[in-house]
Design a protein around this nucleic acid. Sequence first.
DNA 1: CAATAAGCGGACCGAGCGGTCAACTTGTTA
DNA 2: TAACAAGTTGACCGCTCGGTCCGCTTATTG
Lengths: 199, 199
Amino acid sequence: MTAPRHLRADAARNRRALLAAAADEFAERGLDASIADIARRAGVGKGTVFRHFPTKDDLLAAVVVDRIDALTAVGEQLLDAADPGAALLEFLTVAARQRQQRDLSFLQGASELPAEVTAARTRMFQTVHRLVDRAREHGAVRADVTGADVVLLMCAPGHVSSYVPDAPPDLWQRYLAIIFDGLRPEGAHPLPHPPPSVV
Amino acid sequence: MTAPRHLRADAARNRRALLAAAADEFAERGLDASIADIARRAGVGKGTVFRHFPTKDDLLAAVVVDRIDALTAVGEQLLDAADPGAALLEFLTVAARQRQQRDLSFLQGASELPAEVTAARTRMFQTVHRLVDRAREHGAVRADVTGADVVLLMCAPGHVSSYVPDAPPDLWQRYLAIIFDGLRPEGAHPLPHPPPSVV
DNA sequence: CAATAAGCGGACCGAGCGGTCAACTTGTTA
DNA sequence: TAACAAGTTGACCGCTCGGTCCGCTTATTG
């Protein structure tokens, strides 16, 4: 009904550069990254940012939706894997590898998020749920953890290792391994609190 | 050589109110809490804040040192406990209960922190190391985790559960239990990365 | 009860932020 | 290539923040 279907060539190029610059900047500085810095990094003027993304939140949403969708795609492929336990571990590895810990704040304040973000998030959550269910049926994950638990624990390894000042880039693997061991059935102790209902 | 040894009565009262207000405000809003809000909450003028704490960072440091010291004291008492495994779990429970996840940013950027904070932090780290060593010798903790690991994982439960929008106040217990199960010797898989050297 | 200095408060400052806009440049198309 | 719409830009606005400063208040003390 409206909207010329394609952007001018330079505009499309700028948009891509902007998304990449924003992803980097948000990853490094968290949500405190400034629009001016992002614009500079992308090699455009500040006004151009706002032409493509009317608001800082819209820009963040675009970046975040990209990441979530990429993760969902990985998860969906892993649903067919032969070993469901290994598949879940692989998914968590991919999730931790993207430096998501910083811009993963989209998980909280669920009510106030742009619809496209909550939609992407819901899709990802459902994929995680299915991965966890398969792993549980296969005996690779303890009976009392849910998909919601895994969703919440997903970014902990990256977050935890971001605490150490000059962390080696693979340190998160150590904490993913510890947490994953906590998800295994062997030696599991009963959990003291019911699981939350995320989505 | 300088410094009148005691504050005037009202000044001491204001100082206490300020610390309490700052602790609450930082816990609720993170480091984005504004000095003006803290002053209002404490019932004093903004200038008074800066008279007691020359800089926002100094105020944060004072709050944070209080918390760390309290935690260290708990840890030291627990060093004498009969069951070292239960003692470590109890320590982690106390640590997670204070809503520390928000103002625990003092862990990162270690080089730029006020000396008093790094000193308090070091004291706490050493206490944790001893708690972990005892628990390990007692067979309550797997052989390949170190005090540094536990220090880093300490605030994960609170952080993780802060992601769910209207989290029940005890949800962190669930994630502490899962992570603690990951620290136990039973069913432990080898860890893929060497431990960091925090402190 | 003075007298004094320690303490208080809020108007004020400059910096940096997200966001706007009108003048200018440029890709596109007939 | 001419002409127009689409896109770009950086000066600018209003706002909030951390921090300063100076005139006023008040606890303390001989």
